[in-house]
């Protein structure tokens, strides 16, 4: 074993035994396009092996630019990116062979057949051919029947799956999905989520961007919010909902109110438009008002309750709030 082979071997061992903590480590990267457009500003981020990480952000936030920098489609203006411990610029052959990328657009050649284009990617990434693996991938994406069809004859959802098949063709350890479910119907979306969860079970690290925040809520372990090239926060999805989420208790009353009774008039209590319900907004961390406290308070006012509902804010609400707060600054 030569010295490079030896180092590789050690790194591999580290990864297997969990010593190599991060699959991807991004250190202070910035990207400036022409005309001084700052697409990324001083981003630092660590991604653990085997996690599903969702990158959220409005149009033009820099999500694609961040992914492109990691995959080698563009070069960061400054900063360092390491994939599995290797520098993406110096050791690009090692880092890129670990990565599969599903791009946002449909950059496919029209007259290519499905199976040929998938085989092409596998070869391009340095893997020798493996027809049974390709067959498995195509079957899992319901493309096997379409394998000889030219790309031009496929629907948008099928093309999306072809791109996924290409990305998986070389058995990557990391999969990037740039808006995998845009323009995809409900059933296929569900199937994609299942596929991503299945990949995670096999130990694949998945990084996805999405505008559809429900998606992040459904499958992500951690969430990062990007806006105008800056990473506003990175948090475990559950923590994020716990920290920023709000619970709203809505109490429907028998009688119509003119105003909120003095006894319960607090900062986070609102009257509904039809004046038949009162909303109590309960933050998950701050005032710990419980459901029974609320009922007790209402009982004290002498009002009679018709119905009680509780709703929790979704990741979407949290996302919108964080972006709005940032824009206010």
């Amino acid at each position: 074993m030569n010295s490079i082979g030896f180092i590789e071997h050690i790194l591999f061992q580290c990864r297997v035994s969990g010593f190599l903590k991060y699959m991807i480590s991004i250190q202070n990267i910035s990207k400036v396009y022409d005309q001084n457009l700052k697409a990324l500003e001083e981003i630092s981020l660590e991604i653990e092996p085997g996690e599903i990480f969702a990158l959220l952000g409005p149009n033009g936030a820099g999500k694609t630019t961040l992914i492109s920098s990691i995959c080698g489609l563009t070069r960061q203006t400054s900063g360092l990116i390491k994939v599995s411990g290797f520098d993406t610029l110096e050791d690009y052959k090692k880092t890129r062979s670990l990565i599969g990328l599903v791009p946002q657009e449909f950059p496919l050649e029209n007259y290519e057949s499905v199976i040929e284009t998938v085989k092409f990617t596998r070869g391009l990434f340095g893997k020798s051919s493996n027809p049974s693996y390709i067959e498995k991938v195509l079957k899992s994406l319901r493309l096997w029947e379409k394998r000889s069809t030219p790309i031009i004859a496929l629907s948008g959802g099928m093309k999306r799956r072809v791109l996924i098949a290409k990305a998986l063709s070389h058995e990557p350890e990391i999969l990037f999905l740039d808006e995998p479910t845009s323009g995809v119907d409900v059933q296929l979306r569900k199937e994609m989520w299942d596929l991503i969860i299945e990949l995670k079970k096999r130990g694949v690290t998945v990084i996805l961007t999405t505008h559809y925040i429900k998606e992040a809520e459904m499958i992500a372990d951690r969430v990062g919010i990007l806006n105008r090239g800056r990473l506003l926060l990175v948090e475990e999805k559950k923590e994020l909902i716990k920290k920023f989420g709000k619970k709203t208790i809505s109490v429907e009353l028998k009688e119509k109110l003119h105003s909120i009774p003095e006894k319960i008039a607090e900062e986070k209590v609102y009257l509904s438009e039809d004046r038949h319900s009162i909303f109590f907004e309960v933050s998950n961390t701050k005032n710990k008002m419980s459901l029974s406290d609320t009922i007790k308070m209402i009982a004290e006012t002498g009002l009679s309750i018709n119905d009680i509902n509780t709703t929790e804010s979704s990741l979407e609400d949290i996302f919108l709030e964080i972006i709005a707060e940032e824009e206010m600054r």
Binding site: G72, K94, T95, P107, L108, T121, F125
Partner: peptide, 9 residues
Amino acid sequence: SIYEVMSAP
């Protein structure tokens, strides 16, 4: 589709 060639090792 050049994206593939550019992201390949």
